[in-house]
Nucleic acid binder design. Sequence first.
RNA 1: GAUCCCAUAGCUCAGUCGGAUAGAGCACCUGCCUUCUAAGCAGGGGGUCGCAGGUUCGAAUCCUGCUGGGAUCGCCA
Length: 604
Amino acid sequence: MNVFAEVEGKVLDALAGLQKAGALPEGLDFSAVAVEQPRDPSHGDLACNAAMVLAKAAKAKPRDIADKLAAALTADPDVASAEVAGPGFLNLRLHPQFWHGVVKAIIDQGARFGASNVGQGAKTNVEYVSANPTGPMHVGHCRGAVFGDALANLLAFAGYDVTREYYINDAGGQVDVLARSVFLRYREALGEEIGEIPAGLYPGEYLKPVGAALAKEHGSSLVNMPEERWLPLVRTFAIEQIMPMIKDDLAALNIKHDIFFSEASLTKGSEDKVQAAVAELRKKGLIYEGRLEKPKGHDDEEWEDREQTLFRSTAFGDEADRALMKADGTYTYFAGDVAYHYDKLTRGFRHLINVFGADHIGYIPRMLATVAAFADGTVERDAKGKLKHWHTTGGTADLDIKVVNLVKLFKNGEPYKMSKRAGTFVTLRDVVDEVGRDPVRFMMLYRKELEQLDFDFAKVTEQSKDNPVFYVQYAHARAASVLRNAREAFPDLVFADGGTVVANLDLLTDAGELDLIRKAAFYPSLIAGAAKAHEPHRVAFYLYDLASAFHGHWTRGNDLPQLRVIQAGDRALTAARCALVASLQHVLSSGLSVLGVGAPEAMR
RNA sequence: GAUCCCAUAGCUCAGUCGGAUAGAGCACCUGCCUUCUAAGCAGGGGGUCGCAGGUUCGAAUCCUGCUGGGAUCGCCA
């Protein structure tokens, strides 16, 4: 049940009626007609902009249209009043019974309340984390991981068919460095004195067990092999050892991907997927042999001007065409990504979402170009040819690139500097272990993803109203607590029977109670809007607002005992209020689960 | 050099598809605990939405040009 959609339906019906009666011309575009929550409660429960957006096309004054619309809507049994205000707003008030119906719907639908079908089951791929498999995850990966996961939850809840995917960069130079580092630890494990780890190799202690495991499996058989023989072997072994570490780190954040896609697999086996993808682009006339200009702003002594295989990404708003082959004849990283995205498209995904760190912003235009090229879509540009958005439109599939900004670490307000050398390198696991999964997840989402985020180790574990995580979880626990107490006061209290409310909700007459219902009723629209915009942070802010309204109403019961949920002498009223509290608890719990944050029954 | 992001209260930030008198938290001031969890709540002061134009019934929101802060640039992944 989405009250906004429902009331919008009433408005559209009324408009159609006016057209039939000749009060409005035929052929009007109603797509801009919207029903929304007015900011000022004195403007009613819901407001509609129909008269203003239709005035021009209908060649009528907004207030005249609004007057006719108001008259038509007043006839609706759910509508208590319809008033015209301001430049032509239509302010609607609905009967309490309508709002009571929302409580019934929430309890009836339970965890499904808020779920929608805006996604229409469209196959959607969310690629996130994709950290290099060279060691445990560090704190820098945290925000993208949580964001991607919450976005995937949100989209699934809104009716998209979501696949969570991780692209393993297991083919480039970095994994060769990993293999050499592990080989050193392998020799160490066999008793060799290896001394200081040479510059350019990974010094981390976490590679010691990997080296030891390698020694256990192969004994000393690799020691005298030439590097070209042991390297591929050790590389595969190391990645097989490290990916479980990464999966463990993700599990600590409650993150589980459906697919781990190996970059190396693109060129392994019988068919070369990179070649196939490039051939596809060539068919579209987007591959050519040519030269690139030397990049500016770099002291690049190794720059070599040569003819090379290029992808014409400038056709889609990129600032330069992009190389697909290195001088040594191997593919560039980008070529692999081209093939990877081609693969995603051939797997039938309609929507692709990539979560990038802010340090990869420069990579965005070429990825948009790649997907637009394969899917015959477009990348919107302004009059000067510059990129307007970070998503493609049209075609058989689209790509949206979400960029998460930096997280600045603090401890008690003091910047917490990370340094590998000083030993204050912070792993993701360190953070989760120190503050817990819920605070990490909630705080990472309590900010628009593109904004920088301050994360204070001390503040996020504070048990006070200054900590939004605690504040929202406390509201849920408080709801659970009052329901427990109500059952104690009335041991056989029943407010709902198998999802059907049996309490008499007509007893919910207090303005604060109705306001809480109105806020809860917004949840389905909030989910749909956040999902369409790919913005999970809206859910976090909504939950904070809802929690705040609940705490406020609760405390009013201090001064006005007649507002308290549990009324010792009045079983029917207690039951009705318990139904309201239970519905709020459902919404809080649902929103928290979209964010991947726990909803505790008690805070102690 | 080029490109991108950001700019809203003293601070940290929300602001739904362009909607009415721009919101919240912190901090500051004033109140509320023999009470269903005060781990909380209510009230108050605080604004040139960076600047200048434009679009329109209406702009924090869209367009153009500036200013300030941050990031990125490769045959690296």
